[in-house]
Write a protein that binds this DNA or RNA. Structure first.
Lengths: 231, 231
DNA sequence: CGCCACATTGACTCCCATCAAACATTGTGG
DNA sequence: CCACAATGTTTGATGGGAGTCAATGTGGCG
């Protein structure tokens, strides 16, 4: 007596990607969750919600890319997560969102009612899975932020995007950033100048080619991996 | 027809603390989960598991404190999480543990069988909750690692411990670290010397008093909060 | 006491942030 | 179509915060 579950709910992974997870079992509130879901479209650099907003929905990225970030009172910003199709976000522990969400590209987002989501077993399963994937990604990122040099951070960032794009059909080893230098800097815990200098240095060494400002070809995969320290 | 659930399963929060969560509903595999659970004791600085170990259990901290850390090939270490009573850890996305777990104090840990845990609805609910709490803590920590000065990191660290200890009966504003300077450094993304210098600077300014090496009295709460930037 | 591990302090270096200016890219309107 | 903002990026010069290396201090325990 499986409920019919939109397949898109059952994808999800983290930095810019999505892979399979299963769900949909016994009798629970899944019907409610799906019945109350709705999809919205966003342009590039639109805000989906702000840190501190009341968290009445759970969001799932259907298409596009989203970043979550937090601000310090003096304006310093840290991008805490990059999300791709299938990823779930905006699920808060307390009453309010713990970070802001902004699109990196044109995007479609599905919203579920939080009350219903919390009641549904299948949904909890998907959430648990998602949170776990994101948590492990955060552990990785903590190592990057706490222990890596600027060059290592940038190399790892590019390599990671490359791996996640690899699945897609587009030319291999050409990564589309779809982030400004400032956004990359705020993700990697660096300044825009340091990110730019790192790109230039990689270009100088022939490790990458900047096809356009937001398109990077990885010319020397091996050198890249050495710089990123085991990836 | 509620199954009888050990209350300890239903606690859990993150940095060194635990607060309530509910669980235990309908018919699911919770019985199995609990029947297969067992508790182990550890001394101080014991390893519970290593990164890369097969992840066949899910762990819950009953008593004590545990840190999760990751190592880079060249030996650099990043402590990615601090856990207290009630916290769940060691739940892996894939087949292997993504980080190592080491006790900071004498500890009791309950182990659940992963297969059973994945089947149980109640358990999934607890896991989802736990992952969420930890994920939000990681977001906070990413800000610290990516965007804060050494002094801000140390101040925030102390203040955070103080808040979590506050609930307990012990003297107010006296924080027990139960971590070496090296462990603190590896958590905050600093070196041992920088941590030590920051403590000394705080002492010099009269913001803290070092009662013993691992006991810190926060003498000037206000000054501390200013240093930690809104906490 | 004297060892041992851990912590503190000092001197020096270097990576990255900061400030500033030039350069590139895109879109707009004359 | 080009001039020209407007935004985003790169490059340069400089300084400071934190890392590194080394020596000294300190507390715990056999």
């Amino acid at each position: 007596m499986n409920t019919v579950v939109d397949r898109s709910l059952l994808q999800g992974a983290t930095p810019f990607g999505g892979c399979g997870v299963l769900g949909a079992d016994g009798v629970d509130g899944m019907d409610d969750v799906l019945r109350t879901a709705c999809v919205s479209r966003y342009g590039q650099h639109d805000t989906i919600f702000f840190e501190g907003d009341r968290a009445e929905t759970v969001c799932q990225l259907v298409e596009g890319a989203v970043m979550l970030y937090k601000l310090l009172p003096d304006g310093r910003r840290q991008v805490v997560e990059l999300l791709g199709p299938g990823d779930v976000f905006g699920f808060a522990q307390g009453e309010f969102r713990d970070s802001s969400a902004e699109t990196l590209t044109a995007t479609r987002v599905r919203f579920y009612d939080r009350r219903h989501a919390e009641r549904s077993c299948s949904f909890q399963r998907v959430i648990a899975r998602q949170m776990l994937v994101q948590l492990e990604a955060m552990h990785e990122h903590a190592v990057l932020l706490g222990r890596m040099s600027a060059m290592e951070r940038v190399a790892r960032f590019l390599l990671r995007l490359a791996v996640h794009v690899a699945g897609e059909a587009s030319e291999p080893e050409v990564v589309r950033l779809s982030m400004t230098r400032q956004e990359i800097a705020d993700y990697l815990g660096l300044t825009i100048e340091t990110v730019s200098r790192s790109f230039s240095e990689l270009r100088r060494r022939g490790v990458i080619v900047l096809e356009k400002q937001d398109r990077v070809r990885i010319a020397n995969q091996r050198a890249m991996e050495d710089l990123a320290i085991a990836c």
